[in-house]
């Protein structure tokens, strides 16, 4: 006999798998809710621009300031733009973007759908001739899949600008020299895997937020729990996906 906790965990995994499979089934069937998809892109993408940009800027600045003393100690100060740009583009900007989105978007989706579930709005949609899974889940997951890579690219650019300013706090690096060094260092094998994994981050954040919201129970308390679980699980999944992506990149010889 399996322990009750393990049974619950396995049941949850099975439910998430079923929910995810339904996404792939529904996405291929007409009708596609294009207007709602655009609305979600606006909320998920445009409304997160400021937060992602500020965080990315600070991360670029801080990483540069923190890395500088070590490089100075080894007489490798000139490598600062190279080292920082690779760190930011490969890892820090996409992961930080995904974590911010897991917090802001994942919790938002979990709470919104959870609240719709407990106030019977999802049932009302079904009664009104609408497939709620298509209208609410497919549109949101598609929007996170599309918007999070765009936000991550924006975060790359802004964090590199932050790193440029960070390089000039204690030292002097000209605008041209900095960007020449950055672009000379970065290759497709740095940029493409980092962008590719953000599509998976987006999928994980969207599907977990929607799953938690759709399965919200026990009134307003359940809504809070759904929002919380959406953040915790999607943040954890971001790290797991990142780990897998790094292993694949490594095996493919792209490191």
């Amino acid at each position: 006999m399996l322990p009750a906790g393990l049974v619950r965990f396995l049941t949850e995994i099975a439910e998430v798998t079923r929910f995810t499979t339904k996404f792939f089934r529904e996405i291929l069937r007409p009708r596609f809710e294009f207007a709602e998809f655009l609305r979600q892109c606006f909320f998920i993408g445009y409304k997160s621009l400021g937060l992602v940009a500020i965080t990315a800027f600070i991360m670029g600045l801080v990483i540069t300031i923190q890395s500088r003393p070590t490089l100075v100690e080894f007489g490798a100060e000139a490598w600062l733009p190279k080292m920082v740009s690779v760190s930011l583009v490969r890892e820090i900007a996409p992961v930080i973007t995904a974590l911010i989105c897991a917090g802001k978007i994942g919790s938002g989706i979990g709470a919104e759908l959870g609240s719709m579930k407990v106030t019977e709005q999802i049932d009302a949609m079904e009664v009104s001739g609408t497939n709620p899974y298509k209208y609410l889940v497919v549109t949101r997951v598609m929007a996170t899949i599309l918007m999070i890579p765009i936000l991550a690219v924006l975060a790359d650019a802004v964090s590199l600008y932050g790193a440029y300013l960070g390089s000039n706090i204690r030292g002097v690096v000209s605008w041209d020299l900095y960007w020449n060094q950055v672009f000379a260092t970065l290759t497709y094998s740095d940029i493409m895997p980092s962008i590719l994994k953000t599509f998976f981050f987006g999928f994980a954040i969207g599907i977990i937020g929607c799953y938690q919201g759709f399965n919200s129970k026990k009134g307003t308390e359940g809504v809070g729990r759904s929002a919380n679980a959406a953040v915790v699980i999607s943040s954890l999944l971001v790290f797991i996906i990142d780990l897998i992506a790094v292993q694949i990149t490594d095996l493919a010889g792209l490191t």
Partner: peptide
């Protein structure tokens, strides 16, 4: 369901929509 109306216990009005949009929703969706 077009011929059978359902009044939900919790009203189930869509929070993000105005009263008019709430009323138009079943018309558009059906």
């Amino acid at each position: 369901r077009m011929e059978t109306g359902f009044l939900f216990q919790s009203n189930a009005l869509y929070d993000s929509m105005t009263v008019r949009e709430n009323l138009e929703f079943p018309l558009r969706r059906h």
